[in-house]
């Protein structure tokens, strides 16, 4: 059996990481260890730094404030070709929360000003006049595995997909992209979700699916151990129970 060495990048933790999102990096690292995978994680602090995105198996961009997302989008524009190359070569990108706006074609702020996103997929984001915070549970098929994802959404933007752009999943409870049932965006191996905070801690099955996909991408011949997640499953059950009993918002 081959020894498994993977490489991940954690982008701009000091600028983003608004909602405890750094937990996703420790989740990735801890889950990799449990699976017997050697995961090297590089921390990248500056959007001005040129990055060989294609050299990474996984790139994580945590949630951030729209003001800084616009700044980062502008800084990353000069290495858009590197991002595109990585996406086409199968690098997994995980974007959580408002950072979804980074890959958008267009971002419209609440004051009507319009900004270019990186335009890596067909959708646009519009800043909301008010915040919408709620639980978010959605079903998705991620790298061939069906799963439910449990999280929270602090909606600062509404996201509208162009025809032909696929959502990541279907909302079971919550708001999602703009309250109409679709959640996130899925293209190539890019997973973009409105869920934020410790998504990979609460949903370790997503973490495992990502690592398995990297192994598949690299044509490695390995059998990963089966892991069980009793606490995380209990958490998801409890949160569903809470949602069933709570007063539902009027939208």
């Amino acid at each position: 059996m081959e020894s498994i060495k993977l490489k991940a990048a954690f982008l701009y933790p000091d600028i983003f990481c608004l909602n405890g999102d750094r937990a996703n990096i420790t989740a990735l690292s801890n889950t990799a260890i449990k699976l017997g995978v050697d995961m090297q994680i590089d921390r990248i602090n500056l959007p001005d730094e040129m990055i060989d995105f294609a050299s990474y198996d996984i790139v994580y961009i945590p949630s951030g404030e729209l003001k800084y997302i616009l700044m980062v989008a502008q800084a990353l524009r000069r290495q858009k070709d590197r991002l595109q190359k990585a996406i086409e070569s199968g690098t997994i990108f995980l974007l959580t929360g408002t950072s979804v706006a980074l890959f958008a074609e267009k971002i419209t702020r609440d004051d009507g000003s319009v900004y270019e996103g990186l335009g890596l997929a067909g959708y646009e984001c519009r800043e909301r006049a008010t915040v919408y915070g709620d639980d978010l549970i959605f079903s998705a098929t991620v790298f061939g595995e069906e799963m439910n994802i449990t999280g929270c959404q602090i909606g600062m933007i509404d996201t509208f997909l162009n025809e032909g752009t696929a959502p990541l999943g279907k909302v079971l409870y919550g708001y999602g992209n703009h309250g109409k049932g679709d959640e996130g965006i899925l293209f190539n191996n890019c997973l973009l979700t409105n869920a934020l905070g410790p998504v990979l801690i609460k949903n370790p099955w997503l973490t495992v699916a990502m690592i398995k996909q990297v192994i598949h991408n690299n044509n490695m011949d390995v059998a990963l151990p089966a892991l069980s997640w009793p606490i995380e499953e209990s958490s998801a059950k409890k949160i569903w129970e809470f949602i069933e009993n709570k007063e539902k918002p009027k939208r």
Binding site: N19, D134, G197, P198, K246, E247
Partner: peptide, 9 residues
């Protein structure tokens, strides 16, 4: 409303 289960802080 809506109450929610945020512990990510």
């Amino acid at each position: 409303v809506p109450h929610y289960t945020n512990t990510f802080y």
